[in-house]
Every structure is written in C-alpha cells, then in structure tokens.
Design a protein around this nucleic acid. Structure first.
Lengths: 350, 350
DNA sequence: CGGGTATAGGAAACCGGTGTCATGATCAAG
DNA sequence: CTTGATCATGACACCGGTTTCCTATACCCG
C-alpha cells in the first residue's frame, strides 16, 4: 500500500548501464573495470575509470552481494560484561576493516535468555553475514560455534587461552599474566593474599584463578579457602565480596581482583572501613580500564591488548576473503603486561 | 580468479522457488505470504507458512533490498567523545530496532581529519543506508546534514537543545539541567562557584555554560572571568583546568564540571592538593557515567536519558518506514535530572 | 600470406526477490 | 441465466550487478 518512490529527491542513482553508455562500452566491460579484471585494454580502462570518477558512480552493493553470493558485513556478538572492553574491541575491528568494503554490524545478546540461539541464528541467516566475531563469555559457548558452522557462517572467537582451534581464535594468556601480577605481590613481601574470583562458568575467571594459585604454589604459600571470594565481574560484587575478606583475622594484606570493576569495589569497600590503600592493603586488578586512573590511589592492573586483538580477529575473518591461499599470519595468542600504579606497597608488618 | 563456491558446506540455502515448488504455488504467492499481503486465501497462506516454518527458509535480504530499492541498515556516526555515551546510545538504538528487520552498522569517524566528509559519504552511499543517527559533536555539523540530504539519506541528530528541526532531532535540555544543578549549589550556600567549561565549538558546552551563568545571574551572583576554566571533556583536562581554580584566592567553594570525566579530574586534583571533598570543595558533574560511583566520595551529577534518547532517535528514523502517514510520536526533547550523591555539602565558612 | 592463438568486448542468462498486469474462479445483482 | 465486480493467483519483466559463452579483431608464427 505504502507509496514507494515518493521521496526520491536525491541525486538520481547511476547504474552500471549509464556508465557503460557514457563510456561507449558494454556493462560487462564496466564490471571488469570495477573488479580489476586484468584482461582489459589500458585505454578502455582509463576511459571508464575517468567516467566513474567524474560521475561519482558507486556500484549498488545489494546487487553486487546478490550476484556475488556474499555480502560485506561482519557481525559482532557479545553479551556486554564490560563496556570498555566492548568499545575497544569495536575499535580494533573497525581499524582492520577500514579501507575495505566491509562494515561492522553489532549485536548484543542476552546469554541468560533461552532464545539466544534463535536470536543469533536469525541474525546471521537473515543478513547472510560474511562472518562474526564473538566476544567472551559468548565465545565459550561451543553449541553456538556448532550452530554457526551449520549456518555456514565464518567466525572468530575471542577468549582466554583456548587454543584448540587457532584459526578461529584470538586469545590472551590470562593465566600467566595473573601469575606475574601475584608474583609481584609476593616479591613485595605479601603472604596473605586474597582472591576475588570471576563468575563460575567464565573461562577467563578460571584462567585467572589458576594463575593466582600457580604463583602462590610456586612460592610455597598455601591458599586457605577463606581467602577466595566469589565475584561477578561487577563493581557491586567486588564491593560485597571484599567484605568477607576484610572480616578475616588476620586480614589479607593484598587482594587480587579478577577485573578492574571489582578492584574498584575493593578500593571503595576499603575506604568505607577506613583501611588505607596501599599502606594497609595492596590491590591489583585486571583489564586496565580507565577507572583505574580515576580512583585514588590509581590501581595497579594487568593490561591486555584488546584493540590489537580485535584487529587480529577481524583480519583473520576477512583474510580468507581475499583468497583462500593468502595465508593469514595474525597471531592467535597475545600476552598481557602488569601496569604498576599506586595501589601496591609492601605489607605494613611482616 | 578466486574460486567462489568452494566452501559451500553449509545447509544449502533455500530460495523462494524451492518453497513455491514445495507448496505447489507460484513464487509470487510465496512472496505475498512473506510480505503479509492481505489478499490471500487463508488456506494457501497457512500451507505456505507451514512449509516455510518446517524448512527454515529465510528470504535473501540482498535480493529483497535490491528489488525493494532500500535496505534495512541503520548507521551510527560518532566521533567518540565519551565511551559510555556511545555505548548507551548503541543500546538505546538497538532496543528500538529489536524485533524489526533493521540492523545497526557503526561508524566512528575522526572529525579532525579533512576527509571525514568523503569518508561518511562513502559510508552512506556505498551501503545505501536506510538512515543514520548522528551523535554530537558530529551532529552539530550542518554541512554534514546537507550532504546527507543530497545523498538522500535520512538522518536523526542527537544534541543539546537544537530544535530548529524537531523531525530530525532528539535533544536534551542541558541548559535548564545545569541551571538546576547550580541552583542546588547556591541553595547550599555557595557563592564562589567555578566552572570547567567544555571545548569551544561544542553546542553542549555552550548550553551547559549558559545554564551555569543563568543560575548565577538569577541569584545575583557575579561571575569573574577567573572562575571559568576551559576543559576538553577529558579527565586530564579537568585535572589541569582545576589547577588554575585552586590557585585562586579565595578559592572557589564549589565547582561545576561540564562532564563527569572532568569532574573526576577535579576530584583527583583536589586529592593531590589535600583539599577535602565535599567539606572544603563541592563538585557536580554531568552525564552520570559509572565513574561517578566508583570514586570517593561518589559524585553528584546530572543524568540525561541517553538510552531513551537513542531509542527515540531510532524510532523516528524507522517510523517513516512503516508508512509515511504513521505519525511518529517520539518526543524530541528530553529532560535531565540532578542526581545527589556525596560530593556536595555547604561551604565550610560563610 | 594463411592458419592458429590470445585478447577485448558483447549478448544473454542468472542471482532471489518484488511490481504490474492478466487471468480464471466465485459471487451478487439484474 | 447473464453480467459485472471481486478475489486469488500466476506469468513475466525488472532491480543492478556478475558470469558464461561466444565473436571479432589483433598478433604470432612458419
């Protein structure tokens, strides 16, 4: 019913036929110019290119996608655990896509909902996406990957140290990074070190916990269950989780929080209790989000190269587009570094 | 040269012809079912729908877009001044798009670069976007809007109190909101109130500044030039801008920072100088980003409904798609509220 | 100088949908 | 029973590109 062509108004869109007519060649020839076919007369190409340039012709991507059987859309699937991470990832991916004809379509989902799967299936099939990048914790869902395979949708998953399938994976070595951070605490003289763990079922939470335990074990320090508190990667959970650690006697002299949001919660809780940081309590977080430098004292943390990893993920995805043989040489494993700020000091008393 | 159909593998995609054959009807009839044409026999529709459901057929969006002459992609253009804002906006837009066939394509740009314009033109023309949402400060670029008009690309701009063109605009009333915040400070007894302004050329910066001046004028308080410091909406600029205010004698007893990042900078600077907040200095920010509750004391601030505004913007955009007459009733102006936290107290001495 | 081989370029089919218009069936009114 | 209107459906062109296949020309060589 709705009246279609009513808001025409704009510059009438040029078609390949117009260009062909203007250049005095067939549309096929124009198509060859657009697609850089090598078997073309030099003059013909120059002439057509000149016309394209001066008319500002842009081939219709829908028609191209239809004829070519593939489009130029990359999807980003995430269940936002961390605003900063998502945004950095978007940036990394877009950096890689810049200058190509690919665009980024974003898709936050709710992993708790019981139709996530259908939701994502609809997303990739409806738009016939070229491929998707999946962020943690969705990237740990193997059923999702099987579904994507079934749908013939390429994917790259981001995650923590999952190297089963390096071609479809970009990972950071959280375990080693956390171990380094904890070794740093130990070197400062800390022995009673608390852990605020991430949510169960998160690969990163497990990796970070293992790194924590590894460093303690190396130093021969035992880890009583009471020094481990469960968190949800949120500020509030960090705040409440630290309560139980503060109630301990003797109190831990240092706490490693599995991400910065929770570390900020620990800092806040310490302030509420009048515990001085770093003099009475050292804190290390993970992620290096901006909040670490906004609070006082600025938080020491572990930085992982999110943007670079996003870029690598996107390149892996579109690398296969250029040509199957164009070997993709993006690394699959990235390493993190400890950033020392003001939240770590030697313990007050030995 | 590249070999196309080699990684077929996936479930062979069904076409409308397959469905037509299976249902024993013509493709046109199937098309009618898909597009909910009202002039269809009940039985025929049920039969075709059953087949579509059991085969899991999804119409090819590229073909649809080609035939229909429009696609189902909304673009989001921004020059990220504020991660939280961008992310909330994405969320709001996606909420509105949820359940429709539209998808969101994001496009950060660099407004400093001298080919932003070409960049954006390429973006909207190449993908033939249905429409775009433009975030500040890009939304204040009138040349951009003219260009979008030329390209026949619908748009909605987000911004501060620009109501020249309500149909293409979603705005917040920053001036009044800031005036309220400053009135609050005045009511607490403050008379020497400093302002950290936003960058020149930002509409929001001007609106907020005007609100600040308005509230002071109402109360008959004069505003010496020295009480106004320039900032760039960044934490660091807030930090350094507050230095000059702190050097004043007498020092201001309160500071309004034009956004939360700068307010966090003020708080940080105060800590460095040993100025107690809120006892010796009150602070109010703007945006209500998470950082306000991570720092100590938590910052009082002005909250504006970003998600709701994003939703409204998207609805305005796609509202015109459903039918030209379907009047879009989304409001164009949203109002903000003062959130009182712990960074405001009466001045130490009168 | 003639026949074989590249090479540029064109005609037509095709990708998977939608619009237009024609057609046959059904039904109410005359 | 005929006629005109209404309804449900199908045939076919078309959206704007790409691909396949074929032809005409230029070039190579003996």
């Amino acid at each position: 019913m709705a009246n279609q062509k009513q808001d025409e108004g704009a510059t009438a869109k040029l078609t390949i036929n117009d260009i062909a007519r203007l250049a005095g060649v067939s549309k096929k020839t124009v198509s060859r110019v657009i697609n850089r076919s090598p078997l073309l007369n030099r003059e013909t190409r120059d002439k057509v290119e000149a016309i394209i340039r001066e008319t500002g012709y842009v081939p219709n991507p829908q028609a191209r996608a239809l004829a070519l059987g593939r489009n130029f859309l990359i999807g980003l699937i995430y269940d936002n655990p961390n605003a900063q991470m998502v945004l950095s990832m978007q940036r990394g991916i877009l950096e890689a896509l810049h200058g190509t004809e690919f665009e980024l379509v974003i898709r936050p989902v709710d992993r708790g909902s019981n139709h996530v799967m259908d939701d994502i299936r609809g997303f990739v099939t409806r738009q016939r996406l070229f491929g998707v990048v999946v962020l943690p914790p969705m990237s740990e869902n193997d059923a999702l990957m099987r579904m994507l395979d079934e749908q013939g949708c390429r994917y790259v998953r981001m995650g923590s140290a999952m190297l089963d399938d390096p071609e479809h994976m970009v990972a950071s070595n959280d375990r080693e990074a956390v171990a380094d951070a904890v070794r740093h605490l130990i070197a400062q003289g800390h022995r009673r070190i608390g852990l605020i763990a991430g949510p169960h079922g998160f690969r990163s939470a497990r990796e970070r916990r293992e790194g924590f335990e590894m460093a303690l074990a190396e130093a021969g320090i035992s880890l009583p269950r009471s020094l481990v508190a469960d968190g949800q990667y949120t500020f509030e959970s960090g705040l409440s989780a630290s309560e139980s650690l503060f109630d301990l006697s003797p109190r831990p002299t240092a706490i490693f929080a599995s991400n910065d949001e929770m570390a900020a919660g620990v800092l806040y809780a310490a302030r509420l209790r009048g515990i001085a940081v770093p003099d009475e309590l050292s804190i290390i977080g993970f992620d290096d989000t901006p909040v670490t430098t906004r609070v006082w004292p600025p938080l020491s943390t572990v930085r992982w190269p999110i943007v670079a990893m996003g870029r690598a993920a996107a390149l892996k995805l579109i690398g296969t587009a250029i040509g199957e043989d164009a070997e993709v040489n993006e690394p699959s494993m990235f390493s993190s570094t400890l950033i020392r700020r003001g939240s770590v000091a030697p313990p007050a008393q030995t």
